[in-house]
Amino acid sequence: MTSPDPALARIAADPRYRSLVRDRQRFSWVLTAITVAVYSGFIALIAFDKPLMARPIGDGVTSIGIVAGIGMLVGTVAICAVYVRRANGAFDARVAALLADAA
């Protein structure tokens, strides 16, 4: 552990810090809730409506379940990309501004 840094108190008192933490926290909890809800929904669909998942799309063989499953894989990567884009972009810029002024 490092010794208490006077910059810490300055950051903690900075209203920009509070708004940053609030925004980022809300964003990460919303995305967490979406992830958990979509995954639970996917499992529930399989548990309770197998025929729907097995139904082909159009006249072919490819089923709704296959598209949904591959969609889960793609969606997982996509939701990570959404978070990283905003956290490494807008949020990190706000962090950098905070740190620069507090130093």
Binding site: W29, L31, T35, F42, I43, T76
Partner: peptide
């Protein structure tokens, strides 16, 4: 057939949780 995909999804879906709540 299909059931293998259900396992696979379970192994992937933990990563966003690590990202959103813990990593940084």
């Amino acid at each position: 057939g299909y059931d293998g995909l259900i396992y696979a999804i379970g192994f992937l879906v933990g990563w966003p949780i690590v990202l959103f709540l813990i990593a940084e």
